[in-house]
Nucleic acid binder design. Sequence first.
DNA 1: GAGTATCGTTGGTCGTACCAACGAATCAAG
DNA 2: CTTGATTCGTTGGTACGACCAACGATACTC
Lengths: 139, 139
Amino acid sequence: MTSLQRVAGRPTWALGRAHARAQGLLGEAFAAAGVRGYHYRLLAALDEHGPCSQADLGRATGIDRSDVVAVLDDLVAWRMARRDPDPSDRRRNVVTLTGAGARRLTELDRVLDDVQEAVLAPLTAAERRTLLALLAKLS
Amino acid sequence: MTSLQRVAGRPTWALGRAHARAQGLLGEAFAAAGVRGYHYRLLAALDEHGPCSQADLGRATGIDRSDVVAVLDDLVAWRMARRDPDPSDRRRNVVTLTGAGARRLTELDRVLDDVQEAVLAPLTAAERRTLLALLAKLS
DNA sequence: GAGTATCGTTGGTCGTACCAACGAATCAAG
DNA sequence: CTTGATTCGTTGGTACGACCAACGATACTC
């Protein structure tokens, strides 16, 4: 929060505040589920793209491949994903979603849905559509 | 960026993308001017509130007082602010904006204005008002 | 076969944002 | 007037998302 005139009404600030609130709720919800955003994104990519290399995961999620390593370490330790050497290209690992990972992903999908609802709660359905449309134009 | 269905259309994601774009432009612009957001916020607080303690600065800007220390170190090193012991309360420092600080602030105000315009460029004036109103409702 | 590109990995950096704890100083209650 | 609580500046640490450089190993291309 800030009480600065110069800052308070600025679009960048309003955007930042709204984002901070959304991110705060999302972070709390994920933390309560024992994961971070990166874990969810990787699980989602594994589900949507099927088994693939770590580099592929990075490209699919927008996560730097150096960051994929540690996050995947977690998922593997939690038995939510497997990391096997690719027999057809020894540079690569084939990353596979496990049953436990798929189940966890389903739970996290609901967590994410609930957060969307909580974030948008102050808006009517029409306002939500308008906001989404305007935000889309910005990027 | 991401190509994940689960993530791409979500309001939290759209908000994050728009914020990332705005923050990216702002960060670049500030970096080109040799400062970070924290520096601007502190300068603005000094201008709007007048000389005050570091704890006051923290409260006015929403910056943790432990973070104020280092940022203020920069401003002092750059001769944009002074940090003097408060004679009436020896726990405190009185932080004062210098002429150089005020001039820099004016420059940074323009930088910030330009960034607002760049961020909102894809929207009409009416859309900008609508967006601001909706964002305000969210927080 | 030589040079280029990709892969996983290590080990950094950055910015924003918190939090805990400390000694010093001040304030409030008795 | 003294004791206990609070505030102040400061240090040092954590977290998260994000990026970058470089490495050895492997694969691809000419």
